[in-house]
């Protein structure tokens, strides 16, 4: 073999480490929390971590949600009571908001395991 030197081996090892790291990230399919919105028109999905604004049509008009800073709330709705708006912001997996008159159901889905602790705080 041509002169293989110490530095070559060092670089070789570091590179292998980098590749192994990239493989690790490859399988890291962490269930990032998603906002699922079910309406008459179908089901819509959004990433909770990405700021967004979306409007949906229902029997009584339009309902819009806003996703900001990892939280979601009903921004505006054509329903009479506006209960859905007063529900405010939600951000945890499992939280939901519903606008019954307009048939819009907002739910945060995802892997519960990434919550700190992983076990229900309210278990006791």
């Amino acid at each position: 073999m041509k002169q293989i030197r110490l530095g070559d081996i060092a670089i070789f090892i570091v590179s292998i480490a980098i590749i192994a790291f990239s493989l690790g990230r490859f399988t890291d399919f962490s269930g990032e929390p998603q906002v699922h919105v079910r309406t008459d028109g179908g089901e819509f999905i959004y990433d909770l971590g990405v700021d967004a604004f979306a409007t949906f049509n229902g029997p009584v008009g339009e309902t819009s949600i806003e996703i900001k800073d990892g939280k979601v709330h009903v921004h505006d709705s054509d329903c009479r009571n506006k209960v859905c708006i007063s529900a405010g912001w939600v951000s945890r997996v499992g939280d939901w908001i519903i606008c019954l008159p307009n048939n819009v159901f907002v739910l945060i889905e995802g892997a519960v395991a990434q919550e700190t602790g992983g076990v229900d705080d309210t278990a006791f």
Partner: peptide, 17 residues
Amino acid sequence: LQPNGLLLFTIGSFSVT
């Protein structure tokens, strides 16, 4: 991989929006 909008169909646990 970053879902957005109307869900068209799912492949396993993967949502195509």
